[in-house]
Design a protein around this nucleic acid. Structure first.
Length: 536
RNA sequence: UCCCCGAUAGCUCAACGGUAGAGCGGCCGGCUGUUAACCGGUAGGUUGUAGGUUCGAAUCCUACUCGGGGAGCCA
């Protein structure tokens, strides 16, 4: 039954010729059908004591003369495969111990449980088939800079951390669809080519549409409003584009957004849906991805606190908080804590540097110290920027304009004063989009909602009840200086059976960054598009 | 659009006005239980680009390019 590959000899001569042969003459030697079975690494626990074949890529390799350890990655997990030099493995032992990182392989062997090893199992190898060679894989198990990793993003997400994050992304997206599908919403796809701005002043990408300028959609909202008058409850889910010149850890130029829209709904109904929706996402991710979150170092207890009811403040209350003593105290405590940590980090760096330069330090210890120093320096740089910004943030909060929008630092303050997500509602009309419903109790405000994620992750949901009154909507369009003709079809929705309705948009990547506890949004999407970066 | 920081070997960094180095990765050799394995050997550079200061520039100055972070704006 055994699978073997031909062994390559490795004398220095004829390297190139042999490599060409290696590429052009496949060395596949197939086993007889049905003799052994392929297994996903995640299913190895069902096959202890049996002989199976794994199909994957070489994640890591170590060898020691007459024994070689091949850590295989197959997309479902990692498994260490042990090749011991003996009569059976002799034909491929030399090949095995020289395989390059990310070589693709079929490995046959006997499954053995070993709780010490990654994944809890080990394979005693009896057969090896090399499918594709790999030499000089650029991403090694050592530290790399972010620019290098992003230039190699097509290879980067083979690494473990990225694999864990993108698995959570998969479930997040599945739960987004699942939640709305279960609750009676109809999926309505909205156009990517859009004739005019959805929300007014934001920066749009222009595309040449047979000689005419059109824009890449930054929201499907106006279209789902039309659709909810046909289907009652609808949602759209797709990529959205913003040409904002923002180079921060929270911004992408292309990101994914889900936008539910509900007919016969007022602000409180929309808030209730948003709350229920977030809870269902958190519950599902906690249920299915605890191990992934643990690997990522996420504070799981913080996520477990995400339960109904969320906090709810009005914009006016938020303004009072920002201008009052609580905000200032929070930031001053922050400043003190971060300043202290800076001193501590500096001391630690000095200590570690002294130790690293000292005599009698083994190479692996030196490596470890260098890595730790590197991490501390990065933390230090971040802290120094934050400390530099805090006085500015204190000032921004203290002088917060009660008629203005919340800035990024203001959102952080509000969210950090609560351990559950916070809805901020009833913003001043002038700082929000024209389509938002004027508040009945205070006509200078609108029935809108922003949801601030905890721990300073910022706004993950923005939404509102929509203006359903034709006259009021026309007035707002004029006020904003928008062209009424561009919105003719949208105004029709208020002419033919208008009803109270509303909805919101949730940004997938910011939500995922929050769920996984990530510092940078660029890790949350397989191929990030950012200002100045659109490769690969 | 504005502010701050950076660019040295394939990668991560050191050299701080006086002969460009280390670790990892690569290659060669050794080692039967490794966990970022280890040990020995070896190859690898127009210091982002263009100018300037200087006897002498990776190092100082200017501009530009690219990247990182932040403000504004935002999911």
């Amino acid at each position: 039954m055994v699978v073997h590959c031909s062994a390559r000899s490795h004398t220095a001569a004829d390297g190139l010729r042999r490599r060409l042969l290696w590429v052009t003459i496949p060395t596949r030697i197939f086993c007889a059908k049905g003799d052994d079975m392929t297994s996903a690494i995640k299913d190895l626990h069902q096959n202890v004591g049996k002989t199976v074949t794994l199909q994957g890529w070489l994640y890591h390799r170590r060898d020691s003369g007459k024994i070689a350890f091949l850590v295989i990655r197959d997309g479902t997990g990692l498994c260490q495969c042990v090749v011991t030099k003996n009569e059976q493995t002799e034909p491929f032992f030399e090949t095995a111990r020289r395989l390059g990182q990310e070589s693709s392989l079929r490995v046959t062997g006997t499954v053995r449980a070993d709780p010490k090893q990654v994944g809890g199992h080990e394979l005693d190898v009896t057969g090896l088939e090399v499918i594709g060679e790999s030499e000089n894989f650029p991403i090694t198990p050592k530290p790399h800079g972010i620019d290098f990793l992003m230039k190699n993003r097509h290879l980067h997400f083979r690494s473990r951390r990225q694999w864990h994050i993108l698995r959570v992304r998969h479930t997040l997206i599945d739960e987004i669809r699942g939640y709305f599908n279960r609750n009676g919403y109809t999926l309505i796809d909205t156009p990517i080519f859009a004739p005019a701005a959805g929300e007014g002043s934001q920066t749009l990408f222009t595309v040449d549409y047979f000689g005419e300028p059109v824009y890449l959609a930054q929201t499907g909202q106006l279209y789902v409003e039309a659709a909810c008058m046909a289907f009652g409850k609808v949602y759209c889910f797709g990529p959205t584009f913003r040409a904002e010149k923002s180079k921060t850890r929270r911004h992408l130029t292309e990101f994914w957004m889900v936008e539910p829209e509900i007919a016969y709904a007022e602000l409180d109904d929309v808030v209730a849906v948003a709350e229920d929706f977030i809870c269902s996402i958190v519950t599902r991710v906690l249920r299915e991805h605890r191990a992934d979150l643990e690997f990522l170092g996420r504070d799981i207890a913080a996520l477990e606190k995400i339960q109904k009811p969320f906090n709810r403040v009005t914009h006016a209350e938020a303004a009072d908080i920002l201008r009052g003593p609580r905000a200032k105290e929070l930031l001053e405590r922050d400043l003190a804590a971060k300043t202290a940590r800076i001193e501590e980090a500096k001391k630690l760096i000095a200590e570690k540097e002294a130790r690293e330069k000292g005599a009698g330090v083994k190479q692996w210890e030196r490596d470890k110290l260098v890595g730790e120093i590197h991490e501390l320096r990065e933390e230090l740089a971040d802290l120094e920027v934050e400390v530099q910004n805090i006085p500015h943030h204190i000032e921004l909060a203290a002088n917060f304009d009660p008629r203005g929008d919340l800035g990024g630092s203001d959102e952080t303050i509000i969210s950090r004063l609560h351990d559950r997500p916070v809805f901020v509602t009833h913003y001043p009309r002038e700082c929000k989009a024209f389509y938002m419903k004027r508040s009945a109790t205070d006509p200078s405000r609108v029935n809108n909602l922003d949801l601030l994620a905890p721990e300073g992750y910022g706004e993950i949901i923005g939404g509102s009840q929509r203006e359903d009154d034709l006259a009021a909507l026309l007035e707002r369009i004029k006020e904003e200086g928008l062209n009424e003709e561009d919105y003719a079809w949208y105004l029709d929705l208020r002419r033919y059976g208008s009803v109270p309705h509303g909805g919101f948009g949730l940004g997938v990547e910011r939500t995922l960054a929050w769920l996984c506890g990530l510092k940078h949004i660029r890790e949350t999407i397989p191929f990030p598009r950012m200002m100045g970066r659109f490769y690969p």
